[in-house]
Nucleic acid binder design. Structure first.
Lengths: 117, 117
DNA sequence: CGGTGACTTCGACATGAGTCGAGGTTGACA
DNA sequence: TGTCAACCTCGACTCATGTCGAAGTCACCG
């Protein structure tokens, strides 16, 4: 679980600009680790690119050969990393991406062009 | 190990724009997994932000409490993920970041602003 | 109220990953 | 040639993680 405090403490300076302090590294590494599995990466992309901004678990599950139980586990990992949010509506559960953290990770990996003198 | 072919096949469309195909997901997940450890994330940031663009292992090791063996292991993981490159010069080994993959990962995580009608 | 469908949680198992100490390799230097 | 320092590889251990089936919860619908 990543607390908002940890997440913002970890904030924005690009990796290539200054070393990450140890506490921030822990919080950020959790997010990267969550993306460090092919199935979770696909889940994440399916959720983030969903036309309505959200997608039903019942639309995710059939795209994989693994069991629904395992899908559910992976969604939990993404949820606990702060990358997605789930909401139950009627019988179904819908997930949507949380862009803040994605933006933060993207910024972290940003590489400046070679310094132009 | 990520081959150049895999890496470029995985290329550039942001996560939030279209779902990642399964083969690309495998290659990219490996890179994220490599960053998904606090120590490796700190190593990566120390290497990427090194003033001379490179840094000696002997300057990395004392920043941590774990053994040199383990540092070496983590560097290998980053190397095999295609995130860094190592080179032996005289008695020392120097590492430098490989910006291409970093840029690719950053682009993948990029989130567009909400579509302005 | 009971049944059914859509998840999630629980418990168990096999595999993977982080860690270390011991020992190998490479290069400098006397 | 021998020695020493820096780093890597190997083998072993422990703990974390991906996976599944079974059972639980929640909500709709007869």
């Amino acid at each position: 679980m990543v607390s908002p405090a940890e997440a913002s403490a970890a904030c924005c300076a690009p990796l290539a600009q200054q070393p990450i302090p140890a506490p921030a590294a822990g919080a950020l590494a959790q997010a990267f680790k969550a993306l460090g599995d092919p199935i979770r990466l696909q889940l994440m992309s399916m959720i983030a690119s969903a036309p309505d901004g959200e997608i039903c678990v019942c639309d995710l599950t059939p795209a994989f050969t693994i069991s629904g139980t395992t899908i559910s586990h992976h969604l939990k990992v993404l949820r606990e990393a702060g990358l997605i949010d789930g909401e139950r509506r009627a019988s179904w559960v819908y997930y949507r991406a949380r862009p803040e953290l994605m933006r933060q990770l993207s910024a972290l990996l940003a590489v400046g062009e070679p310094v132009p003198a």
